[in-house]
Simulated scan of single mutants.
Amino acid sequence: MSERDTERSVSQTVRAQLALRDMILSGTLRPGERISELQAVEITSVSRTPVRLALVRLEDEGLLQAIPSGGFMVKAFSERDILDSIELRGTLEGLAARFAAERGASARNLEPLKECLSDLDQLVRQDPISVEAFSAYVTMNARFHALLTDLSGSAPVIRQIDRVSAMPFASPSAFVMAQSALPEAHNILLIGQEHHRIVVDAIENREGARAEAVMREHARLAVRNLRLALRNRTHLDLLPALALLTSAPTD
């Protein structure tokens, strides 16, 4: 296969992967529903080999499950699955923060993280916070977490954080928009921002254990967000991948 053909195949695989992921997360493809290669070809208008690779990638992400008789099935997620994913992300992000602190992130490398922290400060100081500001927070928060992860200097850790964050409900901002209309919203953002501030300070002062502990606690804030979002049923339309959730907290 020529280099051009290889690039085209990769492009088709990504296109099929994104299209199928969107259908799963939107609920168009329901939990338990079987997806064959031929069906995926028809859905995505992509040839069979790239589709096969896309399905395998989605299985690796945890969205699909291979069926022994052939094909794949859309997975459902329980509350326990979500809590475990959040805990795993917190553990990995804590490790990344500890590495950043102990390996001595330079002032130059810390500067983008501090700038992002300052931008987040301007957003969370708004009271009340507009829906537009919440949307901007999602983007900035994702950038903050990505910058912090990169400071670890560990390719294996970065790779595993990216992998777990791709799972439904597990990303750092998974519940931000769902909580945007709740009375507790502003207070939650302030708590999260204080966590951000502490971890930057801990990394700068090379306090590895402190940096790790605060990022693990920071991830657990997402558990609180999940429960608040599900308790207030009027805003579940803002909760990504809700169709994949088989059970929800009731207290």
Rank of each mutant, 00 (worst) to 15 (best):
L95H: 10
C116Q: 11
E37Y: 00
E93W: 01
P112E: 09
R52E: 01
L38G: 07
F99W: 12
P68N: 04
E79A: 13
L88Y: 01
A105M: 05
L95A: 12
P128Q: 08
S135N: 03
A105N: 02
S85A: 15
D60S: 15
L117Y: 07
T91V: 12
V56Y: 10
G71Y: 07
E132H: 10
R89E: 11
T28W: 09
R30K: 15
C116E: 13
P128R: 07
A100W: 13
V138T: 11
M23F: 10
E42P: 00
R21Y: 02
S106P: 04
L38M: 05
G27V: 07
E93N: 06
L113M: 06
V131K: 05
E102P: 03
P128C: 08
T49M: 02
S47N: 10
G32L: 09
L58V: 06
T28E: 14
E102H: 05
R89D: 02
A54C: 08
S69V: 08
S85V: 01
V51F: 10
S106H: 09
L92W: 11
P68Q: 04
L110T: 01
L38C: 00
S78P: 01
D22G: 15
L63H: 02
R80G: 02
G71N: 08
S47L: 06
E79K: 14
F99A: 01
L83E: 14
K114I: 12
A66W: 02
S26V: 06
R57D: 10
A101P: 07
S36F: 09
L120D: 04
I82F: 03
I129L: 13
R48A: 09
K75V: 14
S69T: 14
G90S: 09
P68H: 02
L64A: 05
E79I: 12
I67E: 14
V131F: 05
I43Y: 05
L55I: 05
R57S: 10
R108M: 08
S118A: 15
R80A: 15
L53E: 13
A40C: 03
I43A: 03
A136H: 12
R108P: 00
P68I: 10
A76H: 08
A40S: 11
S78Q: 00
M23W: 12
A107Y: 04
D119T: 08
D81S: 03
A66P: 10
L53Q: 12
A40E: 07
D119L: 12
D81N: 15
G70C: 11
S106Q: 05
I82N: 01
N141R: 12
F134G: 07
L95E: 15
F99I: 10
L29C: 06
L64H: 08
T44L: 12
I82R: 07
M73E: 14
K114D: 02
D127N: 12
A54I: 08
E115W: 10
T44P: 13
A136E: 14
L92S: 02
E93G: 07
Y137S: 00
G71E: 08
V74Y: 03
R125S: 07
S26Y: 04
L88F: 03
G94V: 08
N109S: 13
E42Q: 14
S78H: 04
E93P: 01
E37H: 08
G90A: 09
G70R: 12
V46E: 06
A136F: 01
L110Q: 01
M73G: 06
A107Q: 15
E42C: 04
E33C: 06
L113A: 02
L25S: 04
V124H: 06
P31K: 05
E111W: 13
